[in-house]
Design a protein around this nucleic acid. Sequence first.
RNA 1: GUGGCUGUAGCUCAGUUGGUUAGAGUGCCAGAUUGUGGAUCUGGAUGUCGCCGGUUCAAGUCCGGUCAGCCACCCCA
Length: 444
Amino acid sequence: MPRIEPRTLKGFRDYTPEMMIPRERLIDTARRVYRSYGFSPIDTPALEYLEILQGKGGEETDKQLYKFADHGGRMVGMRFDLTVPFARFAAQHAGELGLPFKRYHIATVWRGENTQRGRYREFMQCDFDAIGTRSIAADIETALVIHDLLRAIGFEQFTIRLNNRKVLTGLLERLELADRATAVLRALDKLGKIGPEKTAEEMIAVAGVSVDQARQIVRLSELAGTNEEILRQIEPLVAGSAKGEEGVAQLRQLLDAVAAAGVSNERIKLDVSIARGLDYYTGTIYETFLDALPAIGSVCSGGRYDNLAELFTSQELPGVGASLGLDRLLAAMEELGMIEKISTPAEVFIPFFEAGRLHDYLRIAAALRAEGIGVEIYPDAKKLGPQLKYADRRGFRLALIAGGDEFAQSKIQVKNLQNAAKKDVPLEENFTGLIAAVKGILQS
RNA sequence: GUGGCUGUAGCUCAGUUGGUUAGAGUGCCAGAUUGUGGAUCUGGAUGUCGCCGGUUCAAGUCCGGUCAGCCACCCCA
């Protein structure tokens, strides 16, 4: 019989226990941080009416959208981020939710683009957004959440790059280039990568700006110094544009507040060249890079979008938030050696040592599980050596060994698999001594 | 989507100008050690050489296509 080759689609992946255990841990961490700020969980369908998703993020995102006709002939799309579905959700449920509304949403999204390290066609995002407020306080909180989140995950060396679309819009207004904003911003986004000269060339060639205009825009790259120093240099560049001035003022408020909240300014950097390709951002923009691996791209990005929901409702629903790229971050952590090779979620291993003692092992396991401790009993009664090897490979913390000798003396050996330390504990009716010994090792 | 590189044992890779039964390290299994893993030694198993086709007396090796991975562009989490 001809076999079907087992395989997965390009950019789509299987997750083994070794990958899923750290993945789930990361999800738990994100959930904990979001909840600590009062964000509530929601979920939305993977599939939406195509009209909901299309035309929201720009040309490029439309190309990447997975779309098809469903069995009823409806044109549908698979969500490609969590922000657009949230705008729809908020417009649909604003009445019952009450405003402002803060939610987090951890779910899979799909993008039909070319793959690379840390770039997949199916990946998980962990979004948090506040909708229904224009207050800068929400922008400030967004930066603080990103900061707390990265630290909770275990990063100390990272940089949150901040910008405000209004600054760029203001500059372009002054230069009378507002109509070519998209092309100019796209070129500007490459500044850090290809340098000011090539960026200027691209602006002249693609966006059709004058040499003088290009020079003025590219001057942004010469801005240097502390965040405050950079702000002072931007001020004259946007002077006269109400929007530009507002953007500078908002950035200043944001940076001051974040500093007041105790965030090191090593981790928050003003970067006027980040524009972000998503068209719906209108104000603050966030991108987060790992200092040890900037090449993998931003692991947590977002911004303020004051007009997104207006496509779905006449009600004002300005929003701000960001998204942690879970799978990209995991790829980075893997590369940085931050992922422990553990493939068991249980800590305690009981070898099936004496063929006739299964009932005893089951009773011991049940007592520990009642205390919230994960326990696995090996399924086959066989030699101890291979069983311990099995436990070792999978990363169990300790083994509880009981054979004929132990049962004869009503005791059990508690073995710490990390340092090979062994100690005997009496086997009592209620296992209190054993539970205490196990907890003692697990907490160390 | 475009271009470049790569694809040989579970993993990392070698494989001579195409030439007989395709190798190493590591991991795996068994034993040395009739009740104790991560060390050592001995033995053992495992390959549609990514897949399809072409050239050739002969293809892991050359050519074309395809799939997948990586890199760059584009964009982005």
